[in-house]
Design a protein around this nucleic acid. Structure first.
Lengths: 224, 224
DNA sequence: TTCGGTAAGATCGTATACGATCTGTACTAA
DNA sequence: TTAGTACAGATCGTATACGATCTTACCGAA
């Protein structure tokens, strides 16, 4: 119970969330309440609650009397998520820019350097994506609006669930991304205007989206 | 059951949501599972699920082993919500602008005219707020990104819950709002640039926020 | 008086049980 | 063969029951 201070419902929520973002549960997989309950050694009631919570975040699709499935990968859904993320990340970056300390700036440059080095080796999309989130999270250190920060995290979770991290499908996008990161840091260091930083950060994400969509359009020319 | 095609959990969700947005349940009110279950003639299980869903939307605050309360009114929370709303409403307005038909534009002008007429009579904040949402919703008719539209609705629900609709506390803001609406419509009709429309719509909301915060600072000079 | 502890009431957290609904399959009739 | 039906299995939806936890009020000791 108080083993870790978490209710069983919370445990179930974390378990399934981790399962989805880690790829253990893949898009389209069914999430059967009783099975998960057995896995975790609890009854279905807390599991049910956890699943419904994930539904609110659009991580699972729930059909009455049928069951839950991990929300499927779908270019349209991907586009919705990326656009939303561009919006909230862009604004967050601009909002946090004046609050970024020199120390944080150094840390961010270090992370981006790690990313740059990754480009030379055998490219590892997973690791690259992880560093990418770390980079942006560092810039959001002193976020003045927790609601918006929460939306950023929800977007990231959703992307992880979709497994269509841009870098997985369009690795050629990675070098551009690193360059844009540096540009972003320069703007912040120079104390650029709010709207300038916002536009840069927003476009940073939108560029990734368009790279993926172009890629997808070429791969599936039939689907209009 | 299939009385209306809704599960009991959904019924409970709608009931409590309506109770909160309508003001029947006021901020700080306790939401006791068993009481609500009795009211609705069902067991606590569906009610519990409904409450947890509302928690995800920050409409209720849930404390372990203690219970749920309607999220309280708090200038900080208000600020968070308004800022988030400014962000998503502003972007939505710009995104939808090219899709707004002449017919919709006329409808929006009609709604704004109703609002203008309200200014002369005994001012009714509730009605004014309702028309205000109708106005903006009309502009979002063909919203290309349902995720973002969803965020707008969540923000509206939250504001309704907080009952600190700006117009209730700062009625003097209402005339400015009507003027800004007209300016917004002109921009849309003229096919103004994306960023111009976005900035106008965003500031429209932010102005309301600042009007309230100024008002509050004057009323409570001690709490900085 | 005041502090600490204990017991009672209220409420939540979860397990279990069972009815409701969906899905797929096998069987029958045309 | 094929369409339709009926049955069985799987899974969800909800009610009920009970243990866990919090809050409060009361009481005794310093």
């Amino acid at each position: 119970m108080t083993l870790n201070g978490l209710s069983k419902a919370d445990q179930a929520h974390q378990h399934v969330l981790k399962g989805i973002t880690s790829g253990q549960y893949k898009p389209g997989d069914r999430l059967v309440l009783s099975s998960i309950a057995n896995e975790l050694g609890m009854s279905v009631v807390p599991v049910r609650e956890a699943i419904r919570r994930l539904q609110t975040d659009n991580l699972v699709t729930f059909e009455r009397n049928v069951g839950a499935t991990v929300t499927g990968i779908d270019p349209i859904e991907y586009q919705y998520t990326m656009e939303t993320l561009a919006l909230v990340e862009g604004y967050s970056t601009a909002l946090c820019a004046p609050l970024v300390t020199a120390q944080t700036l150094t840390k961010a440059r270090g992370i981006n350097q790690q990313m740059r080095e990754l480009l030379n080796e055998e490219f590892a999309p997973e690791l690259f994506t992880e560093l990418n989130e770390k980079f942006h999270l560092a810039l959001f250190e002193h976020h003045p609006n927790p609601h918006i920060l929460d939306l950023v995290h929800r977007g990231w979770n959703r992307l992880a669930a979709l497994r269509s991290t841009t870098f997985t499908f369009v690795p050629s996008r990675a070098p551009d991304s690193v360059v844009e990161h540096d540009e972003l840091l320069d703007l912040i260091a120079d104390g650029a205007e709010f709207l300038v930083i916002e536009a840069a950060a927003r476009n940073h994400r939108l560029n990734a989206m368009h790279a993926y969509l172009d890629h997808h359009a070429k791969a599936n020319p039939k689907s209009f």
